[in-house]
Amino acid sequence: MSERNEFSAQVLISPDQMKVIAGREQEFLSIFRQQLQEQLKTNELLTALIQSLSDEQVDDDYAEPLTYMDGTPVNGDG
């Protein structure tokens, strides 16, 4: 199966929307393709983020923290 840059989908368009698009189909499709390309980049970035987060070492949720959120060490004094 060959990879295609074109796509096909059924989209419902109102008569008012069709008036705006009429005669400017190529411009509309060009903008739509640009939006899809940007969405693809976003999806790739999100996928990379999810993969990198899943590769991190999983900490024990019940382990006592060694530092506070500001980075200062926990002394164990309770």
Rank of each mutant, 00 (worst) to 15 (best):
Q17R: 08
E38K: 01
E27C: 07
Q10T: 15
D70T: 02
S52N: 05
M18F: 06
I21D: 03
E44K: 07
M69P: 10
A22Y: 13
G71I: 02
L45R: 09
F7T: 10
A9S: 11
Q34W: 11
T42D: 04
D60V: 00
Q17N: 12
S52A: 08
F32H: 13
D61H: 11
L12I: 14
M1L: 09
T72D: 00
A63G: 02
G23Q: 00
I31A: 13
P15H: 09
L46I: 07
I31F: 15
S8E: 10
M1I: 12
G23T: 00
D59Q: 08
G23N: 01
F28K: 00
F7I: 15
L66K: 07
E64I: 08
T47A: 08
D55Q: 07
M69T: 06
Q51Y: 07
R4Q: 11
E44D: 06
L53W: 06
E3C: 03
N75R: 06
I21V: 04
I21A: 02
E25G: 07
Q10H: 14
T42G: 05
G78I: 05
V20W: 09
L46T: 07
L49P: 02
Q39H: 13
D55I: 05
P73G: 05
D70M: 00
A48K: 14
I31G: 15
S30G: 14
Q37F: 04
D70C: 00
P73E: 03
L36H: 02
E27W: 09
S2V: 14
P65Y: 06
I31E: 15
D77Y: 11
E56T: 08
D61F: 10
V20P: 04
L29S: 14
N43T: 05
M1E: 14
E27I: 10
Q26F: 06
L53S: 06
I50K: 07
E3V: 03
S2T: 15
E27V: 09
L66T: 10
A48W: 09
A22R: 09
S14V: 01
R4H: 12
A63S: 03
D70K: 01
D77S: 12
S14F: 00
V20T: 14
Y62T: 11
F28E: 01
L40P: 12
I31N: 15
L45V: 08
E44G: 06
F28G: 01
L45A: 10
G23E: 01
G78S: 04
F32P: 02
F28W: 03
F28R: 01
G76Q: 01
L66R: 12
